[in-house]
């Protein structure tokens, strides 16, 4: 006699079968939270002029992203917050008195050329902010002069000007400013790229919640220290001390925020470390030997391009290779 089998329903699905609840927007919100101390500190130091740049860059980035998504169907939606983070990071590199059109063009280049044309978050080969800022700096170098921009502003704290002094005077310039000034971010810089302590707070937060791997910042810092130390051995007069290179300019922004960007950094432990190391070494080399006083952006671009190559260093395969029997 035929009896009907009890109906059992099998769900067939690809892995992963278990999800910890993290989301794309959650990742970006963590990054934004980490950037918040620096935004607040920047507003305290430079007033609303700094906040204006951040707000404009974020708004322009989001508008660019939404417009592109309306024109071209793609899965990189504006709701994942990635264009917000890009806007904030771009604003951090711009001078406080940046013209509105400069911010708009920079945001457009960052989001459309740097991100969307390559296929969105997860597909671009170099950090979009580095790309956008590099194009700006090639086109309008005088408009991105931090010192000139700050002279035109009124600000509430006195600033030291480490990058330029060290370039013109050499190591002797270091006596003219205290390291406390550098750490607290009282140095000439963009909206948020030189606020060392406040960026460090955010970076440590990202490390603590394991949003960024420790290998990249550690590699970056070691690279900066080692390269500056070696250069100091060769030419003690003309080179700044390793600690100076760590605290002045955009080093901290670079090692904690630009370098560990998920799309453009390697995925294996050793490649991550080497990637950080390479970026740190490049930073000091560009600062010392090129015409750019702060080479963070170019170091990021070059290291980003090496990232797929570095990722070919994979962990050794466990087991034995099967010999092909002829």
């Amino acid at each position: 006699m035929y009896t009907e089998a009890p109906t059992t329903k099998f769900n067939v699905a690809n892995s992963p079968h278990w999800h910890d609840g993290s989301s794309l927007s959650g990742i970006q919100q963590a990054w934004l939270l980490a950037l918040l101390p620096a935004i607040i500190a920047s507003t305290c130091y430079f007033g609303f002029a700094a906040l204006r740049v951040v707000a404009l860059a974020v708004a322009a980035s989001v508008v660019a992203e939404v417009t592109w998504n309306a024109l071209v169907a793609n899965r990189d939606h504006a709701t994942n917050f990635s264009s917000v983070t890009l806007g904030v990071l771009l604003a951090f590199l711009l001078p406080v008195g940046a013209e509105w059109w400069l911010v708009l063009v920079g945001s457009f280049l960052t989001v459309i050329i740097g991100k969307k044309l390559y296929g969105g978050w997860g597909a671009y080969p170099v950090h979009p902010v580095a790309l956008g800022y590099a194009i700006l700096v090639v086109s309008w170098p005088s408009r991105l002069d931090y010192t000139a921009s700050l002279v035109a502003q009124t600000w509430s704290v006195t600033m030291v000007e480490p990058m330029r002094l060290v370039r013109t005077l050499g190591a002797s310039a270091e006596a003219s400013f205290g390291f406390t000034d550098l750490v607290l971010g009282r140095q000439v810089g963009g909206v948020g790229n030189a606020l060392v302590l406040w960026l460090l707070l955010g970076g440590l937060f990202l490390l603590l919640i394991r949003e960024i791997p420790w290998q990249i910042p550690v590699g970056g810092i070691l690279g900066v220290l080692a390269c500056a130390w070696l250069l100091g051995l060769i030419n003690p007069e003309g080179t700044a001390t390793p600690v100076f290179h760590l605290l002045a300019g955009s080093t901290v922004l670079m090692v904690f925020f630009l370098a560990p960007e998920h799309t453009t950094s390697p995925v294996n432990p050793w490649p991550m470390f080497l990637y950080g190391l390479l970026m740190g070494i490049l930073l000091v080399l560009i600062r010392t030997f090129s015409n750019h006083s702060d080479g963070a952006i170019f170091a990021v671009l070059l290291a980003n391009l090496c990232s797929p190559l570095l990722d070919r260093i994979t962990p050794p395969v466990v087991g034995r290779e099967v010999q092909d029997v002829a």
Partner: peptide, 15 residues
Amino acid sequence: FEAFSFMVKAPGAFL
């Protein structure tokens, strides 16, 4: 008008 001088440089040609 402040020229977008990136475009007349080599990378601008590629772009």
